[in-house]
Write a protein that binds this DNA or RNA. Structure first.
Lengths: 240, 240
DNA sequence: GCAAAAGTGTTAACCCTACACCCATGC
DNA sequence: GCATGGGTGTAGGGTTAACACTTTTGC
């Protein structure tokens, strides 16, 4: 079969194809939960267009990597973060969404524990922003973020996403507030606790958490991953 | 800003770019439900690679259209079908999935009523196959189909997908069998009917359906889209 | 008449909801 | 001691799940 592309080193336009090809980028929406707030990781753009604006970490996909690998690489390069996996978010393909030329963006999302949050050394390059207090973003990244929030709201019914956003040990009120923020609702304390414990994926963790405010200290729990893996094998719809 | 691509008409490789670009295609998984079977629409490939094999309808994305528009166009060109909308399925980006060169495929899916099923005129070019009796497929299209089935199973909880797969009038046993096939489970006849009627999105339709087999004839129902639109506006998790 | 499929109603178990009281802690 | 927040138990309502008998139809 005849090759339908060629590479001409040194040419002004060295990547040459028989058929129309496209620029493809990946972007990542990385959430964490810290200080009772849902936060998202942004990077400051060093190049035009939108130079100086905050944007989702991401960049051009290389020809030898899968989309997930590309998203992971860009994320590592720009923020030193390496989540355990990326969930598929969607395709953003509006022909006018990038002023330079038509760019297809493959969006991904991940949840990380606050303990993995990058330090403040390069706060001018990468920083966490509360989801309800964001700076203006580059491109159509607001739209991508909206899609990510919607995915998060849907996933929380089927996967124990709460535990990927919290530190290894957490209190029941912390977990509850996280659910309330993501879903935009409120739960009864007692019913929430009962349902969570009944699901069987929590185990008690010795000790109490000191709170900075008055009131009884809350007990600590941790996510029982062994139990969860067993449950995943069993059939049936699972909710958390 | 300097242009980072150019077009050289007549050249062997007329599409030339400053940076690496990629071939992007769209593929569609179109389901219907007919003769008590879930079926999927396939087209026979006229060109290499995989010439003569059955494949999902799809093709190269053009630079002026969104991914959905491209998927719709290819679907129309290859199968004369125009579903009301396409749902996002995912990105297939394994570098080796196309033998010609690296191709990113954006996959979509839709549900159509059997009344829209294309006739047998060009059965050699496009045809419906039962989901559990498929010919060998081109590329990684089996993988795309698996992803589509999984999406269908998830969507059926939140959207009344059953009614997009059935004709305007249908019987309760038909609807039940459809749910059972998609979810791979069995339901109690009486409980299924009660739950469906309680959801309020069905209305009775005059007449009975003659069955080809012995047994009492089943009453007909239709989907109450007015009622459904009202319910969509109301808050709360809806299941069907 | 007989087998196959569809229509209908009742009961018990379970789950979810709403709600009240007590306990530990900081100030 | 008092305000704040956390831990626990229980009763009622609603939903789901299990189950049997009757009716209509083709052969």
């Amino acid at each position: 079969m005849a090759k339908n592309y060629t590479f001409v080193p040194g040419a002004e336009f060295p990547y040459q194809y028989k058929y129309e090809h496209m620029a493809v980028t990946t972007d990542c929406v990385i959430f964490t939960y810290e200080e009772r707030q849902l936060k998202v990781l942004l990077v400051r753009r060093a190049l035009e267009p939108y130079r100086g604006r905050w944007a989702l970490p991401g960049g051009f996909l290389r020809n030898t990597e899968t989309a997930v690998q590309g998203a992971m690489r860009e994320l590592r390069e720009e923020t030193s973060l390496e989540p355990s996996g990326l969930g598929e978010l969607g395709v953003f393909s509006d022909p006018g969404r990038d002023p330079r030329e038509r760019v297809i963006t493959l969006a991904w999302y991940a949840l990380v524990k606050p303990s993995k949050v990058v330090g403040g050394d390069d706060a001018e390059k990468a920083a966490w922003f509360p989801i309800d207090d964001l700076p203006p973003l580059a491109f159509d990244h607001e739209k991508i973020l909206d899609a990510a929030m919607e995915h998060l709201r849907r996933d929380i019914y089927f996967q124990p996403v709460g535990f990927e956003l919290l530190d290894d040990e957490f209190t029941m009120p912390d977990l509850q507030r996280l659910y309330e923020i993501i879903l935009g609702t409120e739960f009864d304390r007692r019913n929430f606790q009962r349902k969570m414990l009944a699901s069987g994926i929590l185990k008690e963790y010795p000790g109490k958490k000191k709170t900075p405010h008055p009131g009884r200290h809350a007990s600590l729990f941790s996510f029982d991953s062994v139990r969860y893996d067993e449950m995943k094998k069993e059939p049936g719809k699972q909710e958390f």
